[in-house]
Amino acid sequence: MINSQLQQSFFQMNTIFISILIEALPFVILGVIIAGIIQMFVTEEMVAKIMPKNPILAVLFASFLGALFPACECGIVPIVKRLVQKGVPIYAGIAFMLTGPIINPVVLFSTYIAFGSDWRMAFYRALGAALVSIIVGLVIAFLYRGNPLLEKLHSHQHSVAPISFKKKMWQTLEHAVEEFFSMGKYLIVGSLIAACVQTFIKTSTLVSIGQGQASSSLVMMALAFILSLCSEADAFIASSFRTTFSTGAIVAFLVFGPMLDIKNLLMMLGTFNRRLVFIVISTVTIVVFLYSLLF
């Protein structure tokens, strides 16, 4: 009987693990390809021209840049890493990382559909994402100094001799493959942990804890972290909790999940300085929680 239950749990965990991987892989591949393109085709001079020098303006600019990029949280870390290596300030890079997976048209439209063709939840989600990213970006701008990356920060200057377009495309693919294997291990470990937690911690247990306004927001934030869903799909899961949780708790789920989940956290820890990751985690958690209490 026990062996049968364990076997069933293992198969369930395996199914969840594979489904998370299948859901995340296309966006990781898209992310590393974009990172490769940035590496080969975007110069430090281009970045210097478009990025405002004022930290506040840079954070605002980067926060709303996410509207132009349909990037999932699964693939945005390598993009931000390349942007920072090209000279984008870390506070602007993190602001883009937090809004990119939320305020892009694909995610907002899926949120609109998931909540019965109602724009209100999509608006609350976009507003929350913008507020959180701006606050986190400004906190980093004024509190964090030093190399934000684990590796030594250096300029990726290539040979002064002009490189043909064909060679640039080949090197773009080489960089993308290298980045994929670098990020892939964190994706696999994060997906496995998320699958284990989903299998062995019942959702009903979390629901029973979240009865008050504050506790329900915290429970939904914890659930978003555990489930580790892609931002293109999480609205459909969130909408299923409408009869169980308050609007504020559901907004917390929709804003917090794409910013912080298990696989994304592991990717950040494998890329950025630990102190920087701690500032991001703590500030995102506090601001999302307070924002959810406004409803």
Rank of each mutant, 00 (worst) to 15 (best):
I2E: 15
Q8L: 14
N14A: 11
S19A: 12
A24T: 07
L25D: 01
F27M: 07
V28D: 01
I29R: 10
G36S: 03
I37S: 08
I38Y: 00
P55Q: 09
A58W: 13
V59Y: 04
F64S: 10
L65I: 10
G66V: 05
F69Q: 01
C74L: 03
P78N: 02
K81S: 11
R82Q: 12
R82F: 03
R82H: 04
K86Q: 06
A92N: 02
A95R: 00
M97I: 06
M97Y: 04
G100F: 06
G100R: 00
I103N: 06
I103W: 08
V107H: 12
F109G: 07
Y112H: 14
D118L: 06
A122R: 04
Y124L: 15
R125C: 11
R125P: 14
L127W: 05
V139G: 04
A141N: 07
L143N: 10
P148E: 04
L150W: 12
L150K: 15
L150Q: 15
H158Q: 10
S159I: 09
V160D: 13
F165E: 09
F165T: 11
F165Y: 14
K166V: 14
K166S: 15
K167A: 15
W170A: 15
W170I: 15
E179F: 07
S182I: 13
M183G: 10
A194W: 00
L206I: 08
L206N: 03
G210R: 02
G210K: 01
Q211G: 13
A214H: 10
M221T: 07
S228V: 03
A233E: 14
F236N: 03
I237N: 11
R242P: 00
T244K: 07
A252N: 08
F253K: 04
M259W: 12
L260I: 15
D261F: 00
M267I: 12
F272N: 00
R274T: 09
F278N: 12
F278H: 13
I281D: 05
T285Q: 04
V287E: 02
L290M: 13
Y291A: 08
